[in-house]
Simulated assay, not measured.
Amino acid sequence: MFGGMFGGQGGFGSRFEASYRCYPVSFLDKTEAERGDKIFLPPSALDRLAQLHIDYPMLFQVENRRDGRKTHCGVLEFIADEGMVYMPYWMMQNLLLQEGDVVALRSATLPKGSFVKLQPHSTDFLDITNPRAVLETTLRNFSCLTVGDTVPINYNNRRYFIDIIEAKPADAISVIETDCNVDFAPPLDYVEPVRQPPQQQPEPMAADGPEAAAAAAGGAAAQAEQPQEPRFLAFAGSGRRLDGKAVSESRPVSVPLPTPVWPGSGGGSSSSAAAAPAVAAAGDGASGVVGSAPKRPGKVFGGNRLQAKLADKAAGGGAAKPPAAPTPEKKKEGEEPESGFKAFQGKGYSLKG
């Protein structure tokens, strides 16, 4: 009926044009066709298409002239009743069509797509483990994509809707045997999280009066009661003697110097007595240099014993006399000096035996 309205034998030249009444594919019990964008045409459409020089695969532009909505699709079979076209129900919704409305079909040639941008309706689509793999599997049932269409994707017994918001190199592209890059826009119900500035703790206001003073004193006492952290103290250990005896703490001992005999004094007691206080005073002022070396614990060789004896004599009364220098022992006649090493002191031997 409607096929003859537009020329009967193929329309104008090499372009196919016809008008049909549209119905959903569920009228043909072809529910699997809802997963793609292909329609069912009557057999007469195949006869007219065979007489025209059209490009393959066959693509069509479907238009609702009443509302001015357009989309593109492919053809799956030519088994529809004459004057009717069966199409997926989601396509009828995009074109704002009801059952029995008239649509205009026109053959079309679309470029191969290189880029498409999609926008999911819900953030639930982002919960899919691999959304790109799901989308690639779904688009295998599609022959073309048009900007402005809403495409359903069935996955895991759920249906997700995605809008085609951008396509290159044209608003309508072919996705058959092409390498097309896919990009995703934020879902329609996606809400950008609001970044809250860090909350600043209010500073305590200074209060006057005895209560504030008591609180401040309590805080200071609490800080004072806190144990101090251990600090490193150098040389804080105890001493050990090599001979195994106990180490006794000793203090520096001031030893008075002996009374010097000045030349030219003639051995008089007056000059010696006059010089002694001066020397003693000098010794007291320089106790760190002469006669005041502390007795270090752990010293084995007894270097300070002489100073201790001099201190004892000084405490007993009178000035201590300087120790006499040791006199070398006289050698006896015919006696050789003792030595640790003696050269050429062994027995002699002859090579002749």
Rank of each mutant, 00 (worst) to 15 (best):
T150F: 06
A185V: 12
K168A: 15
K309H: 14
F2I: 09
P263N: 11
A324Q: 12
Y86S: 04
D208A: 14
P187V: 11
L105R: 02
A236P: 01
F142M: 11
Q51H: 04
F60Q: 03
E229I: 08
V85N: 01
P197W: 00
G346Q: 00
P202T: 00
L110M: 07
A273W: 02
I173N: 07
A278M: 12
N141S: 14
A234H: 04
A216L: 15
L306Q: 15
K347Y: 00
A45L: 06
K330E: 08
A293S: 12
Q223V: 13
G36E: 08
L97W: 01
P326V: 12
G291W: 06
L41W: 06
C144F: 08
E203D: 00
A50C: 00
R251V: 13
A273K: 09
P152S: 09
Q345G: 02
K330P: 03
E333A: 14
L135P: 02
T109N: 06
P322C: 03
S270W: 09
L233R: 08
A273N: 10
E335Q: 14
G298A: 08
G348S: 02
D171R: 13
K313R: 15
C144Y: 06
R159D: 07
G148S: 11
Q119K: 15
A314T: 08
R48E: 05
D312I: 15
G353T: 01
Y89E: 13
G237V: 05
K112F: 10
R35S: 07
R251W: 08
V279T: 05
D101F: 03
G11I: 06
V279I: 14
K313S: 10
R296L: 15
P230I: 03
S26M: 12
R140Y: 05
G267Y: 12
E63R: 13
R106E: 10
P258E: 04
I79C: 02
D127I: 00
E82P: 00
Y23P: 01
V102G: 00
A213S: 05
V289Y: 11
L76D: 09
C73D: 02
A185K: 11
Y20T: 05
R305K: 14
A45T: 13
S339P: 00
Q345D: 01
D163K: 15
